[in-house]
Design a protein around this nucleic acid. Sequence first.
DNA 1: TAAAACTATGAACGTCATACACAGTAGCTC
DNA 2: GAGCTACTGTGTATGACGTTCATAGTTTTA
Lengths: 255, 255
Amino acid sequence: MAHERSLPPEVERMWGREPVSRRGPRPRLDLARIAAAAIDIADAEGLAGVSMASVAARVRVATTALYRYVGSKEELLTVMADSAVPLPPEPGDLPWRDYLALWTRGNRDILLERPWLLSAARLSPPLGPRRLLWLDRLMTALGGTGLDDGEKINVATTLTGYALTDAAVVHGVGGGDPRLEEAGVKGASDYGDVLAEVLDPETYPALSAAMRAGVLRGAVGWVDDEDFLFGLNLLLDGIEALIARRASEGRADRG
Amino acid sequence: MAHERSLPPEVERMWGREPVSRRGPRPRLDLARIAAAAIDIADAEGLAGVSMASVAARVRVATTALYRYVGSKEELLTVMADSAVPLPPEPGDLPWRDYLALWTRGNRDILLERPWLLSAARLSPPLGPRRLLWLDRLMTALGGTGLDDGEKINVATTLTGYALTDAAVVHGVGGGDPRLEEAGVKGASDYGDVLAEVLDPETYPALSAAMRAGVLRGAVGWVDDEDFLFGLNLLLDGIEALIARRASEGRADRG
DNA sequence: TAAAACTATGAACGTCATACACAGTAGCTC
DNA sequence: GAGCTACTGTGTATGACGTTCATAGTTTTA
């Protein structure tokens, strides 16, 4: 057949395209249960707590039994990272801009609720069912805008990246980063104090001035919801401009 | 003293604020040499090649000697990630928009040249001299725009995130991702084929239609420079709108 | 009933980050 | 210059981890 093509093994597995075997004892597990166990551990103890041993213990199986279902730990992480993602909101008949805002916020909230996803997130393009569902819904929501498919995908990429950035910053500065917390840096304003102390005004003129003026004092400049909306609206404004441009082009073509 | 405050140890070290000791044998190494060695290894073999043992071997020292200079491997990675960053371009008297484009592209190119930075990049806010220098230059370039310091920082965060996203996508789809390459997925169009094969048109209507139409055929929709500019201009347009708004507010206040 | 196909197990290996005790070295104090 | 002190590099040891492999056990097929 023409488009016979071997998929990466974890992709085969994520999509349940494994050849089903009839002989031998019935498997006591399946990939979904293993992933769920791993996710439970990550939720409770962070990614560091997820080892083959700990996952296996949680599903009451010898460590090496997992390798019947997963080629490597890498693969397990990939599967986890996809199945930890909830279903996307449905576009309904929301205006595209509202849906994009909802979508991006949802995307970010996933990362805030499961900070380990920030580290587990494979930087390669999405191949799992859940993440692709998010992508599909976004493209649906952009249906009437006149953007072509490539542009829609680009929009999705950009918004995903923004969600990731924002979540990383909120999580990094707002709390939870063990490296900083150890040293007593508890929030944005402490972060600012650290910078103010360390920066030489001659080589860092703008930054050190800002810090000494106390930009981050009272968490202004980061962490709160306004900052998320700040960047989001930057992007949405840009997208809106693009859509408008396409619309006028379309009119011009037809007129 | 009022603002006596203990910094995280790797920050102290990155800024050379360690107490200098006069007693005992003179150290045969310093943090910079260690970081440089680790960076060399990462450049040659990727992050996976960087172990305490390999780094130590490269500087001709016993493995455990490194712990005189670095608290943990984590710390070493943090230091590496900062000192692998080159100096930022100087704003000169470029218009802010040109400089921001230059800055963001530079930011991204760093990640393309050293893909391991994508994995090493600490998701927490920057604390190293190099990254903060980039931040400072961006704030300088935004000097005459009327944005306040918090907004400038937000702009920097957003652009940094975009650079990271783009680099990750280019690197992930364009090549270099070992997971995909193994399975013969060499570029964007193969990625599209995989998706087309896997997606059920009923649950993924928009996406599967796009794939079957061959969005990614010929790398359209990803990877090439136009796609980078696409998102970048989205952001710059948004920023421009914000600056215009601030400017008119400023006039309104005065008039 | 025998073969075949598949599953789970336990032991073993190599790698890695890290802790610790020790030996050597250079400045400081007298 | 003697001896104390603080500091540096080494070697050994440990425990965790990912992964391989041979083996024993189990269910279906012939």
